[in-house]
């Protein structure tokens, strides 16, 4: 595989991990968050600074990023998740901007707007693939157990959900923390997939791109979110769109989706093992029938 293709796939995989977090939060639970990029920044800087300042290996930096993200997420979530969803969205935007500015301000430690140099680009495609698959299984388990049902119930009717026995705040907080972990892990991987990170890498339109992907693929469909994540990360890369065009294209996608397919490209459809088995079996039977006929 060419090194260009490998690197495109690595960045796509990393983006998909962040998409999973956004799918849980915004897709299933209905919590629009502009803060995912803040957790990516935390994960990236924890891993990068852990290495450049303290010589910590990637795995330890990744874990430190997760712990910091959980603590920060706990504080942010506790303060904002009791607010109405609109205010929560605003507050998460503020949070990601604060993170970015903190990184710029404490420049003697973080390198400020110059960023952090000298990170070994040691993340490989198999590692990203394995972590993505673990994330995918976690997200799928979330969706098919009571966690997914509770999320959808909350998204649909918070009061009825509470009356049916869900501790709405606690559930939202748990989902927020889980999505923070996904963001943080994606960030750590991102840092170790390049030699260099800087605060502007974690601009708020990175959160927007995650939102667009989940919205486009279908807020109810994990299959849709992942497919949209693949398409919308790979296509601009393959077609060599500049970053300046990306926002225009995203806006276009949102408008077209809202008009023609408000439930997202995939609606509620999920690919399932059984469906695939049936499909293969039918095909087998058809070809067997052809053979006989």
């Amino acid at each position: 595989m060419s090194s260009y293709l490998t690197s495109v796939l690595i960045f796509t995989g990393i983006n998909l991990i962040a998409v999973l977090g956004m799918f849980l939060l915004m897709g299933l639970t209905g919590l629009l968050s502009f803060g995912q990029v803040g957790f990516m920044a935390i994960g990236a800087y924890a891993a990068a600074l852990g290495y450049t300042k303290f010589g910590l290996p990637f795995g330890i930096g990744l874990l430190i990023g997760i712990v910091i993200s959980l603590l920060v997420g706990l504080v942010i979530g506790t303060v904002t998740l009791k607010l109405k969803n609109d205010y929560f969205a605003l507050a998460t935007y503020g949070f990601s901007e604060v993170i970015k500015n903190v990184l710029i301000y404490f420049s003697s430690f973080t390198g400020g707007s110059m960023g952090v140099f000298g990170i070994p680009a040691s993340v490989t495609l198999p590692l990203v693939a394995v972590i993505f698959l673990v994330g995918l299984v976690i997200t799928r388990n979330f969706k098919v157990t009571k966690l997914g049902r509770n999320s959808l119930a909350i998204r649909n009717d918070e009061l009825a959900a509470q009356v049916m026995g869900i501790n709405v705040f606690k559930h939202k907080l748990s989902v927020f923390l889980l999505s923070a972990v996904f963001g943080s892990v994606a960030g750590s991987l991102l840092a170790f997939a390049t030699y260099y990170i800087e605060p502007n890498l974690f601009d708020w339109n990175r959160s927007i791109s995650l939102i667009v992907i989940v919205f486009f693929g279908g807020i109810n469909s994990l299959t849709g979110a992942v497919t949209a994540g693949l398409a919308l990360t790979l296509l601009p890369e393959v077609l060599h769109f500049g970053a300046e065009w990306r926002m225009v294209i995203y806006t276009f996608i949102i408008i077209v989706t809202m008009i023609f397919r408000p439930t997202g490209l995939f609606g509620r459809w999920e690919i399932s093992g059984r469906q695939m088995m049936d499909w293969f079996r039918n095909r087998g039977q058809r070809s067997a029938a052809r053979g006989r006929g």
Partner: peptide
């Protein structure tokens, strides 16, 4: 009526039933 429109008939009931699930 306040049913959960994002959940089908089965999952509307399952949501309430699994609230007591001990996991």
């Amino acid at each position: 009526i306040r049913l959960f429109e994002g959940l089908n008939v089965y999952d509307n009931v399952k949501m309430a039933a699994s609230c007591r699930s001990e996991y």
